[in-house]
Structure formats: C-alpha cells, structure tokens
C-alpha cells in the first residue's frame, strides 16, 4: 500500500487516524450539517448524505453563517465529530471549529491535499508534528 506524507502546521496537538472524507467544496453553516446525525445536508454538495462522524475531514474552508462552528460543536456534544481535521488553509470559521472540536488538526499545508488525498484513504493526522500520513486505498472498481 502506497504511503505519502505531507506537511503543514500543527494547530491542535494529538494523533488520530481514520478514513478520509475529502471536501474540496466548502460546507455552509446554516443547513450545512445535521447536528443530530453528522450528515452533510447542503443541497447539491458533493458530500451530501455523508457523515463527518469519525472521519479525517479534509476541508477547503468555511462559508455562510458566522455560526459555522456551532454546528460542529452541537454535533460533538452529541458524540458526533471528525476524528481529525486537515485544513489546507486556515480561516476564521474553520479555526473556531477546530478549537471546539478539539481533535488533532493540521493546517496551512505545504502542498495541495486535494491532489493527494481521496475519500476513503486511511489518513493519520499528527497535530503535534504537523504531518499528515496517507495510506492510499484501492480505488479500483
């Protein structure tokens, strides 16, 4: 299995691994994530219907409501949270969400993770050292 390591800035320390959920499209605040299921409910979003629960969420950024983080917060209180965050470029909405989720987070990556990580890859996020290790899943068939 191919292993790739990309580097960024460790923002929230700790190590966690899980399957990647890759969102090149931002997720909106209101009507973006169902706080009770963790599912993306934004109409037409490529990840619509997928859940953020226990995934390594690779997300381009936030948009919409300034209450963006509160939806991740409310989901986390219900036990639904990504196990780690990979944010190619930090912004204020995702920054607050990272703090409220409190999961290992790497931000401001040196290379484009959307060129490297695909949904389903097994990803280990080390928020202390700022490394993201990707073990490629077989995407055949």
């Amino acid at each position: 299995m191919e292993t790739i390591v990309i580097r960024g800035r460790g923002a929230i320390p700790g190590i966690a691994s899980g399957p990647a959920m890759v969102c090149r499209e931002t997720i909106q605040g209101w009507s973006g994530i169902d706080e009770t299921t963790g599912k993306v409910i934004e109409k037409g979003h490529p990840a619509e219907g997928q859940t953020i629960r226990d995934v390594v969420l690779v997300l381009s950024g936030g948009k919409g409501s300034n209450g963006w983080s509160s939806h991740f917060h409310a989901a986390r209180i219900r036990g639904i949270s990504p196990c780690a965050l990979v944010l190619p470029k930090i912004d204020s909405r995702t920054g607050v969400a990272a703090v409220v989720c409190g999961v290992p987070t790497v931000v401001d990556l040196q290379e484009d993770p959307f060129m490297v990580i695909e949904s389903g890859d097994l990803v280990t996020v080390d928020g202390t050292s700022g490394t993201v290790t990707i073990r490629k899943a077989s995407h055949d068939g």
Partner: peptide, 9 residues
C-alpha cells in the same frame, strides 16, 4: 472583524 464563530464572539 473576522467571521469567527459564536463561541469566539
């Protein structure tokens, strides 16, 4: 101001 979030505000 940044957009931040409810907790930060």
């Amino acid at each position: 101001s940044n957009a931040d979030g409810i907790e930060a505000a």
